[in-house]
Simulated scan of single mutants.
Amino acid sequence: MSPRRALPGRAAWIAVLALVALAGPALAQDGAGLLDALGDVLSDAPDGSDERASLSGRILQLVALMTVLSIAPGLLIVMTCFTRFVIVFSILRSALGLNQTPPNMVLTSMALFMTFFVMQPVFEDAWEGGLQPLLNNAITEEQALMRVGDPFKAFMFANTRPRDIELFADLADRSDGTAGELVLPETAAEASWRTLVPAFMISELRRAFSIGFLIYLPFVAIDLIVASVLMSAGMMMLPPVLISLPFKVIFFVLIDGWYMLAGSLMESYMPVAGG
């Protein structure tokens, strides 16, 4: 790289450093002033006053909100139908023989918005039962946490096999040293988060791979037919994938595959999510 080409880059870095040097003390001073003001409000307010309790509650709500936002991607994966959608779409792309089409971003976005569509009743129940009363100072943080989790707990319990719940309930009893007669939960309220979340995950993985197997079958049949035709024609050096790929794509388009797959995946949840 010539010195002339490197000059704009150095000038940009110098400008950034100068901006940080000039704005840093001001930002630090503003932050310190904000903390001092907050401390003054807390110190001036008498113990047990409504102002002090309200401000302390708002601070706790802000900390809780930041914590939830930081773990939101993990919660979206383990407590919703996102796992099944994204795995089925990935298996479909492999069955079609397309490596990067549709891209990962397209499949993930489609699975994300389908998840929001299916989980909308659950989100509304969590908002109306827990978050909205909490923001109106009608309930405490502990009550809001319980009410927000109940709709998700009911959704996961309804979509989890009893066998999977039994597995983790048995393991939980062994780890606690209370192994004996195993009593399975009959309702979502009786199930614990410790056993329900992993049981829901493996149930979703099992269903996703079962759907993926059924998706693979017609495309494997097309691959076998094309390979047999090429072998009988003596074109053994021609890769069958080059010939079968357009046939698989047009087959999927003609049967309106995206409509059928997306509709079937969402309909498998709709009675549970709406009920």
Rank of each mutant, 00 (worst) to 15 (best):
L38K: 13
F117W: 08
E204A: 01
M266Y: 05
G31A: 13
V78G: 01
L230A: 03
T83M: 12
R5S: 12
S54H: 10
S175W: 08
I243A: 04
A144D: 05
R52I: 06
W193V: 08
P151R: 15
N136V: 06
V16Q: 09
T101R: 00
A45I: 09
S175E: 13
R161I: 00
G130K: 09
V229H: 14
V86S: 05
N136G: 14
L135N: 07
V16T: 12
S268N: 02
V106R: 00
A188L: 11
E124Y: 08
G180H: 14
W13Q: 12
A138L: 04
I222R: 08
L214M: 04
L184C: 03
R161S: 15
A28S: 10
L184I: 02
W258H: 12
L38G: 15
S210P: 00
E181H: 07
L171E: 11
F157R: 05
E181C: 04
D176G: 07
A227P: 01
F213C: 15
R161E: 14
D223K: 00
E166D: 14
E186L: 09
A15N: 03
A179R: 12
A227K: 07
I222F: 01
M114G: 04
S210C: 00
R93S: 04
W193P: 05
R58A: 15
S268R: 07
G9M: 15
M146A: 15
L7Q: 06
L242Q: 00
L69V: 07
